[in-house]
Nucleic acid binder design. Structure first.
Lengths: 176, 176, 176, 176
DNA sequence: AATGAATGAGCTTTCATTCAT
DNA sequence: AATGAATGAAAGCTCATTCAT
């Protein structure tokens, strides 16, 4: 891939994320291209249709989440710490878009695979935290992962959002 | 308002809510009218544009929420009980639509007023619960109301969702 | 169907045929609508996409051809006369469009059925003419029908075209 | 012209003819270039626009037809033989494309000149055949040439097509 | 000289909204 | 008052053509 093409691809993804955040998921392809400083044709060369642009945004977030979660699991002193770190990373990603943008179901198999791999990592953190007695045991790791995505996949969420504190407190198992 | 007009109006609102739930917020005016067994013209006689249909759906939910919250505050044995009851009512309303349907920001003053009145009632329940020592005090009533709307305004939420349990546990202040 | 809708439908078909003849099969939907004195939306209400407009034009011609061929077979004094009459009718229809317009294969089952029924009638005329000793017997009725469509389905063909004379003379079996 | 440039030019013309036959006249410049194993840029270096590519394909056919007709006229034992030979040559050329490809009227003067020169040769064969009593005299040579182009310029025509037999029989003047 | 990325006009199609019946 | 036909702006997408690499 030529260096200018790579640059344009990134410009497009950036502009799309910004516009989707700013104007909601109805932002038009024309707007996105224009806001990236490019013509529509260029947008369509990189992403053959609207769907595939959305998918790529989602895939990007999921890949970054996966990488982060992996690293965190390797280094965190406890399952709980890993879990908290993953949540914090999630709110920093435009993961929100994954859900918010996609009324269209985005069912690309690659995406499902990515989501599964990330979920597996989150489940791993949850399981460890449960074993270590830091996280309530009346929920399955999958249920916890689902909740996490609800909390975290919202446009406008910011690190330090009080909802996160409450959510973590609701999950935590504290020693009597 | 003549009784058949009233009936048509209700048919439309019902069909719209169903379609929005089933097909997402992109359901067209034509579809809605057709699924209510009416022509588009009739739909437009009742709601001068799409926006005002959305607003009316939202207003409907908010009115019902308000009525319920009011009743609950009057009868519940404690602030906490009132709060829990309100949450449970919320998930039973198509409140989810209020958010889901409206990427378009529904800024009708009447709606804001309704939302404010409902929020005030929720804040009242929160304040009482805080005073009675059942709900953590490091959050303002407004913050709690915001969280509640996040938890509750999601398409597909069902009574008994584990997220609600966790959320309530995170908010609850339990005696040592 | 309301009378104005019927009128508009006919306006559209007429305008489309004229434009396709005048400007070739690339005439745009916008042009067609405009030239019928209507908005694009109206065109699309009558024909849900470009394809179905083309199909309707083709079907119209085939239906008229069928009706004509039927009548002709019933009344013509001989198979040969019927055959000649059918050819003459063909050049008067915008049958040319059927072929010319359709790079798109137009594979609507109804169309195929119509074409088959017309072909059967042509084959009937051919067979009769062969039995009556007026048409050469070294060709199958289907082959003759194919040739006929080549001769006749050309934009710009006019009644009395010398090619038709030559074609008929080439087919005719004259008594020694 | 360098030998590789010549080669590329021929690759392009070949690919274009094949694609037009296979996929109809809507084949895109990109497809043509790709199917010739080249980039679009190279295509445009050889043919400044789509039109000129089409024109060159047509010119190529006409030049070959001219050469063949010339040779045939010089060697055929009779006008009729020359005429028949020319027809047979025509169906072997991608002459069909000349018409099929060009809904766009190819009005390059050079093309007209080529067509005229070829027509003149065909007219010569016709005139000779008429004088020799082999071809009906109620048609002008130009009319016959026109018919010939109708018969012959169709995608999919093959040597031995029965239409050619019929056409020749219709033109032939047989001794009583 | 060759490549293929970028461009944007233009095409098909949809849908909120208006208006004749 | 109800209907659904008509409208046209705007969206998604394609492709001939240009131009940077």
């Amino acid at each position: 891939m030529r260096s200018d093409a790579r640059r344009n691809r990134d410009l497009i993804l950036g502009a799309a994320v910004d516009l989707f955040i700013e104007r909601g998921p109805a932002a038009s392809m024309e707007e996105i291209a224009r806001s990236a400083g490019l013509g529509v044709g260029t947008l369509y060369r990189h992403f053959p249709d609207r769907q595939s642009l959305l998918e790529e945004i989602a895939a990007d977030s999921l890949r970054r989440l996966y990488d982060y979660a992996q690293a965190r699991l390797d280094t965190a002193p406890s399952g709980w710490d890993a879990f908290v770190g993953i949540i914090e990373q999630c709110v920093a990603l435009p993961l929100a878009l994954t859900k918010a943008v996609s009324e269209t179901p985005l069912d690309k198999p690659e995406l499902d695979a990515l989501a599964e791999r990330s979920d597996a990592l989150i489940a791993e953190a949850v399981t460890r935290a449960q074993k270590q007695g830091d996280l309530r045991r009346d929920l399955s790791p999958a249920q916890v992962a689902d909740m996490l995505s609800v909390i975290v996949c919202r446009p406008g969420i910011r690190p330090g959002d009080p909802l996160i504190t409450v959510f973590l407190d609701g999950l935590r198992l504290r020693p009597a």
